[in-house]
């Protein structure tokens, strides 16, 4: 079976300026994949190449064994492109029905499919609204809805929750999680906490180069714990935890959040020791993460 995405030595230059440089990676279908990087790192360029909006200067890309733009991929790959807007002349239901027809739905099923995906995004009461009558968040949800028409195998989402209120952002995360068994999502976002909740694989781009391709499950999770405690003086916490025999190092870059490095081979149940210490000291904790946070993995 072909990998979901296979990029080899991908280069893209715009008027002499390098946007992507020798990017190679392979992704399999499955859990959502995060695409991370600072502004101007080449994330949107990579998305655009995968969607066949632009052509690479050199290198090759295969999605499900086909080149982007191949007829076999129509309706199989979908996207929420950055800043793409709907046609202002038609209601969102009419436009999504039109897209569904282009994907092969007959007239009545196309309307039903448009209703289904808009309802998934909580827009069932706005089916016949023109795009300009919707709020920014609603338009964003409608744009995500169009990407879900026909249950594609791969959906590329560029900043899916940017500009959404927390309740709707949560709904979208839940939706992505609920359908990720059938559809693989590639999500570009600056919200690392969001990506951490959704994705197991991270592609990290910087200055057009792929710096890391992390598979979270493969890293040395047993050696790190990230704990977020509540109102415990930093030095007191560090001094106390350091006394636990398995602890090698403890760092704190953010208030109340500590990264503990420990000997995981000899003390695989260190998390239980830590929890016991917290309970004994009556220190409430808000979060305990096995391993490093995504932010720590990428930027430390």
């Amino acid at each position: 079976m072909s990998p979901l995405i296979e990029c080899q030595n991908l280069d893209k230059t715009y008027a002499g300026k390098t946007a992507l440089k020798n990017v190679s990676f392979t992704c399999q279908a499955g859990e959502p994949i995060a695409l991370v990087g600072p502004n101007g790192a080449g994330k949107t360029t990579l998305f655009s190449i995968l969607c066949d909006y632009i052509r690479p200067t050199s290198g090759s890309v295969k999605i499900l064994g086909f080149e982007p733009g191949d007829k076999a991929l129509l309706g199989q790959v979908s996207a929420l492109p950055q800043d793409a807007q709907f046609d202002p002349g038609f209601s969102i239901h009419s436009q999504l029905s039109f897209y569904a027809k282009l994907q092969g739905f007959k007239s009545a099923p196309a309307k039903q499919e448009a209703e289904r995906v808009l309802a998934l995004m909580g827009l069932e009461d706005n089916l016949h609204s023109l795009p300009n009558m919707l709020s920014h968040g609603m338009r964003k949800r409608a744009a995500i809805a169009q990407a879900l028409i026909g249950q594609p195998k791969l959906v590329l989402l560029d900043e899916p929750t940017a500009g959404l209120d927390p309740a709707n952002a949560k709904k979208i995360r839940q939706l992505i999680s609920s359908i990720s068994a059938e559809t693989t999502f590639i999500i570009s976002s600056h919200n690392l906490q969001e990506l951490e909740r959704l994705c197991n694989t991270v592609l990290y781009l910087e200055k057009g180069e792929l710096q890391q391709q992390n598979h979270s499950l493969e890293d040395s999770r047993e050696s790190f714990l990230t704990v977020h405690v509540q109102d415990v003086p930093q030095q007191v916490f560090i001094d106390e935890i350091k006394q636990l025999s398995a602890v090698k190092e403890i760092q704190s870059d953010q208030k109340n959040e500590f990264l503990i490095t420990y000997d995981g081979q000899n003390t695989p149940d260190f998390d239980q020791h830590l929890l016991k210490t917290l309970a004994d000291k009556n220190w409430p904790y808000r979060r305990l993460i096995k391993g490093k946070t995504l932010e720590e993995k990428l930027f430390s």
Partner: peptide, 15 residues
């Protein structure tokens, strides 16, 4: 507008 990007996900440039 970028609508062409939405169209290209389901049909070809020729169409």
């Amino acid at each position: 507008r970028g609508t062409l990007r939405l169209l290209l996900m389901r049909t070809s440039r020729d169409v």
